[in-house]
Design a protein around this nucleic acid. Sequence first.
DNA 1: TTTATTAAAAATGTATACAAAAATTAAAAA
DNA 2: TTTTTAATTTTTGTATACATTTTTAATAAA
Lengths: 205, 205
Amino acid sequence: MLENDRSRSATHQSYAVLRDRILNGQLPGGTKIVEEKIASELGFSRTPIRESIRKLEYEGLIINKRVVKPTEKDLRNNFQMRILLEGYAAQCAASFLPEQDLQALYECVEIGRKGTNEEIMDANERFHEIIVRASNNAVMIDTIDRMQSLIYLFRKTVVLNQRPHLIDEHEQIYEAIKARNGEKAADLMKSHLQADLDFCLHIIG
Amino acid sequence: MLENDRSRSATHQSYAVLRDRILNGQLPGGTKIVEEKIASELGFSRTPIRESIRKLEYEGLIINKRVVKPTEKDLRNNFQMRILLEGYAAQCAASFLPEQDLQALYECVEIGRKGTNEEIMDANERFHEIIVRASNNAVMIDTIDRMQSLIYLFRKTVVLNQRPHLIDEHEQIYEAIKARNGEKAADLMKSHLQADLDFCLHIIG
DNA sequence: TTTATTAAAAATGTATACAAAAATTAAAAA
DNA sequence: TTTTTAATTTTTGTATACATTTTTAATAAA
């Protein structure tokens, strides 16, 4: 389902392009971002470019007019946040997640077992998203959403390197939620994320 | 110590003025924000005004070109986040807070007992800020910082209405941190915030 | 009345020009 | 050489004009 980007605003288009280039490595960490350069390259004026750069700054992808180069500490900080927030969200999910979402959660597990790399990454993201939404807390959803870009840079590593047990852990979490065991779901989510963190640290270390 | 605002950028000045007007009620919830109107009123062009409005949108003070009118649910959501994050931060503080900050924490308690309303509000904010910083997690500090404006709108209520035990609770938290008892500090912080929430709900209900 | 339709206006989005500030380079002094 | 200073260039900040979209108001049809 291709969206016609010409119908979106220049700000939105340039934001999407820049974000994409940062996330896929075309604009590697440390790259200097110059408004005029980007503007003429994308065929817009500086005005919408400025605005999309600000957006990326709020998202943490650009700092001081340079593409962010996340450190090991950034990695730890992001995961510590996720452990707190998604642990709570998993607990909520156990209490409140509707049958339909439970189904969707299980489908993510299945895709995790037999999908392509691309599909697995999407399913992984969706799995966490469904649970986060179960928190029913817009501030939380927003916060994690904003952290998503940074997280993505790392999660790519995890999935591309096929961390062992990743999908098994998802399935266990799914089972705990299905059994409506909030405490167990939260604990499993926390150790799942801790394992993700450890694996990332191991890979990049 | 007055800062010369003429030396700051138009964007920064207009941001500061708008934020202030929203927080002190001059621009009440629901007010329509029109770029041109604000621009001519403050004597700037639309360009810097646009940028400061975006900033306030990211902070959650403006939604859909209107000043936010926080609901009871917003209140609950914000406090739920704080309970998770500041609970963790209190635990960190018990482990890592340097002697000097401990001192500063105690001063906040003292001011809470014998300061003016204005001073008490500042001290209250500082008390929480010191603890949040002890998390040593930039993502967390940033997140809470962004939530600060919304929180402020409510915290004003709490302090102006003189919630009973507020300072006693602060002192207990301080004692637990001083005793380096992380688990107790976290628990006390959580119930402190829960009490704040309950009081706010009681006032506005 | 109520609901559609259309005209007017108001407000936002974008481009462009110029001013101010920051970064870079070149020249002079140590 | 190295360091300072000044000149130059680059980049960002701001104002303004115009285009596009959204909102509002007015009119006509149901």
